[in-house]
Simulated scan of single mutants.
Amino acid sequence: MIRLEAITKLYPGAPRPAVDRLDIEMAEGTTTALIGPSGCGKTTTLRMINRMIEPSGGRLFIDGTDVTGLDPVLLRRRIGYVIQQIGLFPHQSVAENIATVPKLLGWPAATIAARVEELLTLVGLDPARFRDAMPHRLSGGQRQRVGVARALAADPPVMLMDEPFGAIDPIAREKLQDEFKEILRRVRKTIVMVTHDLDEAIKMGDRIAIMRDGRLVQHGSPDEILSEPADAFVEAFVGPDRALKRLSLRKVDDLLTPGEAAEAPAIGAGATQREALARLIDSGAAALNVRDAEGRILGHIDRTALLDRPETRR
């Protein structure tokens, strides 16, 4: 659990604080997405959590301990950190990069080697192929996977992610988001993620914190943010298509009608209702069959059932 109490950052000569008495609590095992306009204080907030930027005031608690007085170097060894530029050490192999913090903590070599194998497998990289590879030989997506593995290496309770998918091309980004969301669900860390992309925040975050001018404007679940914007700023920020965005939070499985629809296109189980609506509009069909991974039809969804939802009628 992370709790920020009146955390403030005022730079000398600045007309206003970069972060202004921020109060927020992030529950253990959840992902909180920090989002807002450029200059709103989200990245400063993230970096104050591991004290890469020192707060001007306030208190910061991690798992009930006030860490504002701890040695920042020791603190950072307990916090995983993933950045947009990935930041792998170019002169070190993949395995050496992942092993950075465990080595600093004095782990035995055999334990480190086993942890490297475990994490490469977790992030979908074959250890035999990638263990000894150098970073310049990897694609952007592969380097980002190694960056996540390195952040997880010492099994930290907290992970900070600063625009982790920002440098990845759009097609690879969506795939990585899906994969990392599953990874983070399995490892159960408390994640704080900075993003400028609302769709990414909705997809990745259990909670979204919207900031403006260094202050917290609204903090809630994606559905709460989209359905009940706190003010005109949040309403404008989430956009006029927030009803459609809410459909991305719902799965087609929730609307299944038994049986197969004749001459209907298909969509995979687990797809979002937003994806289903796009498929229906694109095909002009009145229904979609829903298939599992083996191709078996689980049922179908009707266009009318999808459109006759509170989300699409608001």
Rank of each mutant, 00 (worst) to 15 (best):
M159A: 13
L160M: 11
M161K: 07
E163G: 09
P164H: 13
P164F: 14
F165I: 05
G166Y: 04
A167V: 07
A167E: 12
A167R: 09
A167L: 08
I168H: 07
D169E: 00
R173M: 01
K175W: 04
Q177F: 11
Q177N: 11
D178I: 10
D178Q: 09
D178T: 13
E179Q: 03
F180E: 01
K181D: 08
E182Y: 01
I183R: 04
I183F: 05
L184C: 07
V187N: 07
V187T: 12
V187K: 04
R188T: 06
T190R: 02
V192Y: 09
M193R: 02
V194N: 10
D197A: 04
L198K: 01
I202N: 05
M204A: 12
R207F: 13
I208V: 01
A209H: 00
A209L: 03
I210Q: 08
R212F: 05
R212C: 05
R212H: 03
V217M: 00
H219P: 02
E224N: 02
I225V: 10
E228K: 13
P229E: 07
P229I: 07
A230P: 10
A230V: 10
A230W: 10
D231H: 02
A232P: 03
F233Q: 00
F237M: 10
V238Q: 11
G239P: 05
P240H: 14
P240T: 15
D241W: 12
D241K: 14
D241C: 14
D241R: 15
R242M: 15
L244E: 13
K245D: 12
R246N: 10
R246M: 12
L247W: 00
L247C: 13
L247H: 05
R250W: 09
K251E: 15
V252D: 06
